[in-house]
Amino acid sequence: MGYLGQIFVMAITAIFIQNYVLSRFLGLCPYLGVSKKIDSAFGMGMAVIFVMTLTSSITYLINRYLLTGMMYLQTIAFILTIAALVQFVEMVIQKKAPALYKSLGVYLPLITTNCAVLGVAILNTTALRPDGITPYNFLDSTLNGFFSGVGFTVVLLAMAGIRMRLELVNLPKSMKGMPIALILAGIMALAFYGFMGFKI
């Protein structure tokens, strides 16, 4: 399997098989909270992809070159990086792309507490390529962050689609809101089992 093949497997894995939301249970708050409308889900998804990709590359460098011997600072360093990054991204977007800021702005601060972002950063430090041997390099980490964000966005959008549809029907009262969202997540997780065991 060439490098491209490995990247492909990484993508399939991050998006479908080991989807951050459905199989690792990370990023559930925004998944359940910002999935009521397709538009906002799309905005959130884009913001997450952006931040996850950036975070993955920066935390890789921090982990590799700054934290050597001080692994106990990993959590604190990563979370500060993410917080700073989100702040920075927010400022940049606000200045350079006010229209984008208008649609993404509200979601950006939420990303700080999106555990999927911290999760990707932490998991990247110990992850191996699909060959099962090689640790991630800078590019792998960045790509993995990107794919994980895409995986998050895909399920977020699907969820938003279903929930918008359910808005129009008569749900049982006790199921409205969180319960139905959780059951939907369960159903999606079951459906995503179809991707299990992909061997390319």
């Binding site: 191996l128 099962g132 299990m196």
Partner: peptide, 9 residues
């Protein structure tokens, strides 16, 4: 020894 199994290594 390590290899990719069903979901991960």
């Amino acid at each position: 020894a390590s290899q990719r199994g069903y979901s991960d290594n």
